[in-house]
């Protein structure tokens, strides 16, 4: 099958003034050398801590980045470069963004009009009612203003608005925060349905546990780098995972031992060289600190950015023991 989206070596920089008063600028690399491939019918979760620049990825794909950021690398949609003009033509139709929250709805416009994008003909009315119905919202919802919606309803309205025209590629940017488990589960189930209907879904979230419920593949972000790109099924057992941080994530789940490691995740772009995980990694060696660049390696059907993981798969299994001992109890 042809991939629907290919992200190749994409980096996003931020230009900022050093301080509020200063005149010198600095450049922060928030996303570094990101490569992903998404197939139709697949849900790909991009998981990273909040404030780690994940939303910029969505904005970068759609070419709606803020003025002080800059993107390098290549994005292919349906095998062809997704240029600014092409993105402009396709977004809202074939490529849609399900944004984070109610603030993305126009507060002065009724829900129905927003879903129909202002059109009033009978066909669009029918389509908008269908879209609402698909997500368990009654036709009356059309006549409500955004402030009259609860958090969960607003998310469903956003999904309905995004999927009126049967998109082929959907980006969902943090669709669940602030929702209780039941409502969040419902939203995720809808995303799964969209993928099952043949679209590619890129789910950007900080919540690994929720992402694992619907994702086919998971890309883990750490300090602006994708340190691992694994199948969701690999998370069934930590020995199937590759990067020490991903393993640490697994062990840190409340249901999996709630184990911690030392150190804190650095702010993206602050590490100048070497592996960003060195301060927390128990398994690191000198070359991890000194390497100019750590290229992703292909290991057991997934990608990992770690010098200590052998590209040859036979020895990888023994590493779990080492990591387990280093954990703080």
């Amino acid at each position: 099958m042809e991939p629907i989206l290919q992200i190749q070596h994409v980096s996003i920089d931020f230009t900022q003034y050093e301080s509020r008063k200063g005149t010198s600028r600095r450049c922060l690399q928030v996303i570094r050398d990101l490569s992903l491939t998404l197939y139709p019918g697949q849900v790909m979760a991009v998981v990273g801590a909040s404030g780690s620049g994940k939303s910029l990825l969505a904005h970068g794909i759609l070419h709606i980045l803020p003025y002080n950021s800059h993107m390098r690398g290549e994005i292919l949609y349906n095998g062809e470069p997704l240029t600014k003009e092409r993105a402009k033509r396709l977004r809202g139709r074939e490529i849609v963004l399900i944004p984070q929250g109610v603030t993305y709805l126009d507060p002065l416009m009724k829900v129905g009009a927003q879903i129909r994008k202002g059109r009033r003909d009978e066909a669009s009315r029918r389509m908008s009612r269908e879209a609402l119905g698909r997500y368990g919202l009654s036709p009356d919802t059309e006549d409500l203003y955004p402030f009259e919606l609860s958090g969960g309803m607003a998310r469903r309205v956003l999904i309905a608005a995004a999927t009126v025209e049967k998109p082929r590629f959907v980006i969902a940017d943090e669709p669940t925060p602030g929702l209780d488990t039941v409502s969040a589960g419902r939203i995720l189930a809808h995303l799964r349905e969209i993928a099952d209907a043949g679209a590619g879904v890129l789910l950007i979230t900080h919540d690994l546990e929720l992402a694992l419920r619907i994702a086919d593949r998971v890309a883990v972000f750490y300090a602006g780098e994708t340190i691992e790109d694994a199948a969701a099924s690999d998370f069934a057992d930590p020995s199937l995972l590759r990067h020490p941080f991903t393993k640490a994530l697994w062990h840190a789940m409340p249901g999996h031992g709630f184990r911690t490691i030392a150190g804190a995740q650095p702010y993206p772009g602050t590490a100048e060289r070497g592996c960003p995980f060195v301060s927390s990694c128990v398994d690191c060696v000198d070359k991890c600190r000194e390497a100019e660049e750590i290229a992703p390696r292909y290991v057991r059907g997934g990608w990992v950015r770690c010098l200590r993981v052998q590209q040859d798969t036979t020895e990888a299994g023994t590493e779990n023991g080492d990591l387990g001992e280093g954990m703080e109890e």
């Binding site: 509020r20 003025y67 002080n68």
Partner: peptide, 9 residues
């Protein structure tokens, strides 16, 4: 200079 929306221009 002081407005957050354009402070980094």
């Amino acid at each position: 200079w002081l407005d957050p929306a354009s402070a980094h221009r």
